[in-house]
């Protein structure tokens, strides 16, 4: 069963079309990723799905309820972690959670247990009596996820859950999010800027300028750019190139004395390649495709300038790829 169904959704703010006729479905118990650059319309879509905004036209159903006609039922079925924190910083972690439990009419006898359970789940039990003011960004994020789970929602929305976190906390949070569907019987709808982060998703939709430009599993999307790019420096480029082309059938290109090729599974490809060309190998590096690459491929423009710089070689390979198709 599709737990979220969006049909021809449009949202205009004056003459800005934030969401431009999008349709998609999310299956129950899966993690769905909404991927797009700043201003793509991700938050606007979430706000419509969680009944904070009304669409200009189109339809949205969450847990079988119409977001426009049955907002109360939708609200009961969802939990949400907004892009910007919505905790009361003057209250303690525990008080924030109890507030939420009352708002969602959690039965009083269960309240304490449920609050303590989620606090343990996000590893904040021993900080429960600290005011949220004293929490780090990552702790606040975890507390918000915990809060979103207290009332046992069927869908949990996460709007850029890793915003402002260091790489370590990002990874922890992703591991934690990946476990949610099984542990809490919940469907996850999340947004992010990074394809790497969308790795945990079962399905991804890429949105740009209010339009969905691609949907698929993370692997399917990476295949759009032809997968990973492997760079090899060898002592004998000419022969190495010939050997790789013969054994793997890759299109091997050369740039600044370095060979490079795109392959769908870089990690398994590298060992085989080294076995084939043996001693000639000097250095090997692997570049995973980013959202920016998929983006470039689909729209012909970069997402953000700073992400484009330093990726000259991969841009080259994509241009080469595009010329060939």
């Amino acid at each position: 069963m599709s737990i979220i169904r969006v049909e021809n959704l449009v949202k205009k703010f004056g003459n800005i079309t934030a969401v431009n006729d999008i349709s998609f479905k999310v299956e129950e118990g899966t993690i769905f990723g909404f991927l797009g650059p700043n201003g793509a319309g991700k938050t606007t879509t979430i706000n419509i799905l969680c009944t904070l905004l009304s669409p200009t036209s189109g339809r949205a159903l969450v847990a079988g309820y119409d977001c426009m006609k049955e907002p109360a039922s939708v609200r009961k079925s969802i939990g949400i972690v907004f892009q910007d924190t919505t905790l009361d910083k003057d209250l303690t972690a525990y008080e924030n959670l109890v507030f939420h439990a009352y708002l969602y009419d959690v039965p009083k006898i269960e309240m304490k247990d449920r609050v303590n359970d989620v606090l343990n789940f996000v590893d904040l039990y021993n900080r429960k009596d600290d005011t949220v003011k004293k929490f780090s960004g990552g702790m606040k994020r975890r507390l918000e996820v915990a809060r979103g789970l207290i009332h046992r929602p069927r869908v949990l929305f996460l709007d850029e859950p890793t915003l402002g976190l260091d790489p370590q906390s990002r990874n922890n949070l992703w591991e934690f999010i990946a476990e949610l569907p099984k542990k809490h019987a919940v469907t996850i709808f999340m947004t992010t800027h990074y394809l790497e982060e969308a790795e945990v998703c079962d399905r991804i939709a890429i949105i740009d300028n209010g339009k969905i430009i691609a949907t698929g599993t993370p692997d399917e999307l990476k295949k759009i750019v032809g997968g990973d790019v492997v760079y090899i420096r060898t002592s004998d480029n000419v022969n190495a190139k010939r050997e790789i082309q013969r054994s793997f059938g890759f299109d091997v290109l050369e740039k600044e004395g370095e060979l490079y090729m795109t392959c769908s599974m870089g990690d398994t490809c590298i060992p085989e390649m080294i076995r084939t060309i043996g001693e000639k190998v000097l250095t090997v590096r692997l570049q995973r495709p980013t959202l920016n690459d998929v983006f470039l491929k689909l729209t012909g423009k970069a997402i953000r300038e700073e992400e484009v710089s330093g990726e000259g070689s991969i841009l080259e390979s994509i241009r080469a790829y595009r010329r060939r198709h």
């Binding site: 969680c50 904070l52 919505t86 939420h100």
Partner: peptide, 14 residues
């Protein structure tokens, strides 16, 4: 301003 209103507004509360 601090966003807490959203927490209240998405709740199933009239």
């Amino acid at each position: 301003e601090f966003g807490f209103m959203k927490e209240i507004l998405v709740a199933p509360v009239s």
